[in-house]
């Protein structure tokens, strides 16, 4: 009697899985790479209109790589430059990256023992969301890097294009595109909501708390929202709740 030999177990960290997932991640990001591209164009146009040189704009784009942080930072870019306020602004606006990062070890799973910390430089809302949703990817870290490559390239390309196109975008149009960040967030939360297995009540309460706080203090709004959402999630998540 012949027995079929068991298939050799392939580690999620195998090069084959990594390459396949990397390619899939890049393909997934290509479809929505217009977001970072347009953000890049708008950022550079805004930076030039505020007195930054093209070179400074490109370097900011390349080494900061966070549109919301850059826009918020430019708002307080005065003489003398408030370094502490800049740091606090970056930490506050970028705080959602901390929360996204908290989930990453579980998302990456066994695909990587510990990612090189430099690769986390590429963490953005978009590639975090895509990687979180890609449950069938065999190497989620590879998938993350594939998304990141496309998102980062589109953002930097958008910045460079914005340098050349800045004169074509008038002030009224630039003013009108202020809402693009919020539009992006609205689409992001709908994408996140699809297939999410937990309760959405904490999200709703976080939004309400943040909106109410913003009527008194814009700076504290995000923090208040996250704290209320986290508190509610903490109170309502039981030991045996389904993940």
């Amino acid at each position: 009697m012949s027995q079929t030999p068991p298939e050799p177990a392939v580690s999620p960290r195998s090069t084959e899985y990594f390459r396949d997932s990397y390619r899939r991640g890049a393909m997934a990001a290509v479809r929505i790479s217009v977001f970072p591209f347009v953000f890049g164009v708008l950022f550079m146009t805004a930076a030039l209109s505020r007195g930054f040189s093209g070179e400074q704009g490109v370097v900011m784009s390349v080494i900061v790589f966070a549109g919301s942080v850059l826009f918020a930072g430019m708002e307080i870019w005065n003489e003398p430059l408030p370094y502490l306020a800049l740091a606090v602004t970056a930490l506050s606006v970028g705080s959602r990256h901390v929360l996204m990062g908290l989930t990453l070890p579980g998302v990456f799973g066994r695909s990587v023992s510990r990612p090189p910390l430099l690769t986390l430089f590429f963490l953005t809302d978009l590639n975090w969301l895509l990687t979180t949703k890609a449950e069938d990817a065999r190497n989620r870290f590879g998938y993350f890097l594939g998304c990141s490559t496309v998102v980062y390239s589109s953002w930097v390309l958008g910045t460079v294009m914005g340098w050349g196109m800045a004169s074509l975008i008038d002030d009224v149009t630039l003013h009108a595109t202020r809402s693009m960040g919020a539009i992006f967030m609205a689409l992001l939360i709908i994408m996140l909501s699809r297939g999410f297995r937990g309760s959405r009540w904490p999200w709703l309460l976080a939004g309400v708390a943040s909106a109410l706080t913003s009527l008194y203090s814009q700076k504290l709004a995000i923090l208040a929202g996250v704290l209320v959402g986290a508190l509610f999630a903490g109170l309502t998540t039981g030991e045996n709740d389904a993940q």
Partner: peptide, 26 residues
């Protein structure tokens, strides 16, 4: 763990908290 399940909801809270003020104050 319970903490693990709680943190799964936090990114949604953060995105919601960033979005909501734009809806109210815009």
């Amino acid at each position: 763990s319970r903490t693990y399940r709680i943190i799964q909801t936090l990114p949604g809270c953060a995105i919601s908290a960033v979005l909501a003020p734009s809806l109210i104050n815009g």
